[in-house]
Write a protein that binds this DNA or RNA. Structure first.
Lengths: 174, 174
DNA sequence: CGGATATTTCTTTCTATGCAGAATTTTCCG
DNA sequence: CGGAAAATTCTGCATAGAAAGAAATATCCG
């Protein structure tokens, strides 16, 4: 697949962004490429277009699949896998959020709960320390609770919330 | 400063989290330590408690300051800087969000806008590619617009929104 | 079954970044 | 003004993680 200068810029920037957001450059670049591509691409093409090793594409694809960001399709008379990306930005955001929650937030919650229990049991624990831990735990719990509810909403509802912006508060007061 | 096993666990986990969220281990560990510490700590103590080089503490402190997460205080008869962390989780979250937006999102927006213009100008550009770029741009713009409004809200309003959870939609329909 | 094509796994570089320690600069007090 | 204490900047090394390439495995078709 041929990259126009615009596509190349997009792919490169997306790749750099990835490194700042918990995935490596290759994964993010492939994601960008598939996001832009009008049609599904076989791994070989991806490797060639992005000048990276075929094995690297293979591993990166696996990572993208674990996020649920890409899917496999086939064409008659071609036994290679063809990959295509989810193209709805909302869906992309939510799938990434879900996976990162699983990988990052859930373990953090476990740790915080454990710390809270320990701090309670250990008699000598500084009350300030206790308080800081339980406050942080409560905060993360309430945020994840909010997230768990909101993520189930139909897309149009999410759009409505975002469009309402800060006016949401006015509604709440009613 | 002495670390209880609970504090140590907290600090270590926070450090690992940091690496997944765009700051390095040292920065996150220091942040965790200061978050837990009942009183402000001088750099020397931090270095000793966490067994890291004094220079490393110095650089990490600078990073934390650029996020607005810590502040400097002094004690009479002691000319060393003493550092203390913001302890309100909401404030912590918002300051991190603000800084990451500046570092990550704003440049991404610039790139997307540039790509959108380029794609428009270049006559041969695939309409699908154009569409994907403008959709992503619109999405990020609307999210950041939402964020810019919400971040200004008083803390109690944010708490109210989070506590309302998905019920927020019911309000919107009214 | 055999061999071509496709894919994955394993091993080996390579490189960016984190961090320690040295060197330098700044600050403050006698 | 010295010179001690504190803080920062600089330099280089060590290492984790990313990516390449080799080797192994799987898939499919004649």
């Amino acid at each position: 697949m041929h990259l126009t200068p615009t596509m190349e810029r997009f792919v490169l920037h997306w790749g750099e962004m990835g490194t700042r957001w918990g995935v490596n450059r290759s994964v993010a670049q492939i994601h960008a490429l598939l996001y832009l591509s009008p049609n599904p691409l076989p791994a070989e093409d991806i490797a060639e277009t992005l000048s990276m090793a075929r094995s690297n594409v293979s591993n990166s694809i696996r990572e993208l699949q674990s996020y649920g960001l890409i899917s496999v399709t086939h064409r008659i008379g071609d036994r290679r896998d063809h990959f295509q990306a989810e193209t709805d930005p909302w869906e992309i955001l939510l799938r990434i959020a879900e996976e990162r929650k699983k990988r990052e937030i859930d373990p953090a919650l476990t740790m915080l709960r454990q710390c809270a229990i320990e701090a309670e049991e250990q008699p000598g624990t500084d009350p300030y320390v206790k308080e800081r831990i339980t406050r942080m735990l409560g905060f993360v719990e309430s945020l994840t609770g909010w997230y768990d509810q909101v993520k189930r909403l139909p897309r149009p509802a999410m759009v409505a919330i975002v469009n309402a912006g800060a006016r949401i508060v006015a509604f709440l007061k009613k």
